[in-house]
Amino acid sequence: MSAPRHGILNLHPSLLPRHRGASPIPAAIIAGDSETGVCTIVMDAGLDTGALVRVDRIELHGDERAPALEELLADLAADTVEGTLRGWAAGSLTAVPQEGDGVSLAPRLRRSDGRIGAMTSAHAAWAAWRAYQPWPGVYVEIPGVIERLRLDLIDAPLPASDAANGSLSLDDEGRLLLHLPGGALPLRRVTPAGGREMDGVDLVRGRPEIAAAHARIAS
């Protein structure tokens, strides 16, 4: 890395030292960050530990999905990278060491990260669904009914009811709801293991036991 006269610059889609690693965009959504951005750093031997050359920030509103946020940050980087490179080569920009406080890691995603359990809060599940697109996605397990049910499209949480955590039901509007601590998630599109994607209500029509009183997703 010392061979190039001006070093090697790298673009990282988070506000370093927060969310160092392979999955900073999902990590910002999961953490509920109020802002994120793109950092230009001088690469060193560490994991995203290089000195900061430039920091560009954007505000987050709590409803972002990973693919759209990735595109937004890519556009931000594209708009600024030429000026950054010219300034760095001309010596008009200074690299500043990252702060020692506020360090967090965003490791490579695993398929199991998308598993929603009966005690996962509704807002955490909503964040996971927005963060883990297109992979690994989010899913639940319904023991004795469906080995794995992928949640392809869900809406923001509704207020909590007195339904048991982990249960599923149809509401008065015909929506399939997943009841979790702190709220209920409307499941608009789902895919059962080995099946095809379908509306949540169509799943219940074909498998009425899903919304039976005893059915629960796994903890």
Rank of each mutant, 00 (worst) to 15 (best):
M1C: 15
H6Y: 13
L9M: 09
N10K: 13
R18M: 09
P24Y: 05
A28D: 07
I29S: 01
V42C: 09
A45E: 14
G46K: 13
L47W: 15
G50Q: 04
L52Q: 03
V55Q: 09
R57T: 07
I58E: 05
L60A: 10
L60V: 08
H61Q: 13
H61A: 13
H61G: 12
G62Y: 02
G62I: 05
A66C: 11
A68V: 12
A68K: 11
E71A: 14
A78S: 12
T80N: 14
E82N: 14
W88F: 05
A89D: 12
A90W: 11
G91V: 05
G91F: 05
E99N: 12
G100H: 15
D101Y: 14
D101N: 13
G102P: 03
V103I: 14
S104M: 06
L105M: 15
R110L: 08
R111F: 10
R111P: 06
D113M: 01
A118S: 12
M119P: 10
S121E: 08
A122E: 03
A122T: 04
A125F: 02
A125C: 06
A127I: 00
A131R: 00
Y132T: 00
P134Y: 08
W135P: 02
E141I: 12
I142R: 03
G144V: 01
L153D: 15
A156Q: 07
P159E: 11
S161Q: 14
N165I: 10
L168K: 02
L170I: 08
L170E: 02
G174A: 05
L178R: 06
G182T: 05
G183E: 10
A184F: 06
P186F: 08
L187V: 04
R189Q: 12
A193V: 10
A193L: 11
G194E: 13
L203G: 01
L203N: 02
R205M: 13
R205P: 08
A218M: 09
S219A: 12
S219W: 06
